[in-house]
């Protein structure tokens, strides 16, 4: 992937100036790759949209009892998780890795602090990251992963001590 950090969606990445020249071969290849994967992106997006409520409910039901004690933190954390998933899904659909990051930067960290959601966020997102690969195909998850991770970075979730839930660490193009 050659997407620069904080880029815009796919069509904005192209310089639409036909008076200057044709789109370059490299840009054409990025565009073809995107168009080639578009049907799969739409399928994945539709599935996430349909699963949203059940998926999140399942994550919530699995939380340990003590994590559910602070209701306002739990409710806020659920909303944040849904938001992040929606931004990640849309980011995947339009190939805009940093969509969630751009829109939620500053705001999300403030909410985490105000509602003290970090403990619940950590649990919800760890289990979200485990569930999504089971619901999506490998290619779909690999397209969802970059925008999802970019948005999740705003939560500052501590790394898991056991590495078994994250089989291989891919080189992410964080900036």
């Amino acid at each position: 992937m050659t997407t620069p950090p904080l880029s815009q969606h796919i069509l904005r990445q192209l310089e639409l100036q036909p008076d200057k020249s044709y789109i370059t071969a490299q840009q054409m290849s990025i565009l073809s790759q995107y168009v080639g994967s578009l049907a799969d992106r739409i399928r994945a997006y539709r599935q996430i949209r349909e699963w949203e409520i059940n998926l999140i409910q399942e994550l919530v039901d699995r939380l340990p009892v003590e994590a559910k004690k602070n209701t306002s933190a739990l409710e806020q954390s659920i909303k944040q998780t849904i938001l992040i998933l929606r931004y990640a899904a849309l980011g995947m659909l339009v190939d805009d890795t940093h969509l969630g990051r751009r829109r939620l930067e500053d705001w999300l960290p403030t909410m985490v602090e105000v509602y003290q959601t970090q403990a619940v966020d950590t649990l919800l997102h760890r289990s979200l990251n485990q569930q999504l690969p089971r619901l999506l195909t490998d290619s779909q998850f690999s397209m969802l992963k970059p925008p999802l991770e970019a948005a999740q970075q705003l939560l500052h979730i501590p790394e898991e001590t056991q590495s078994d839930s994250e089989p291989q660490k891919e080189a992410t193009q964080s900036d």
């Binding site: 409520i53 409910q57 659920i78 829109r103 999300l108």
Partner: peptide, 21 residues
């Protein structure tokens, strides 16, 4: 906590003044 109750109007409020929206 039921997720459906939190999504009664499907609108989740976030960063209202985010520049690009």
């Amino acid at each position: 906590v039921l997720v459906t109750d939190l999504l009664t109007d499907t609108n989740l409020t976030a960063n209202y003044f985010a520049t690009d929206v």
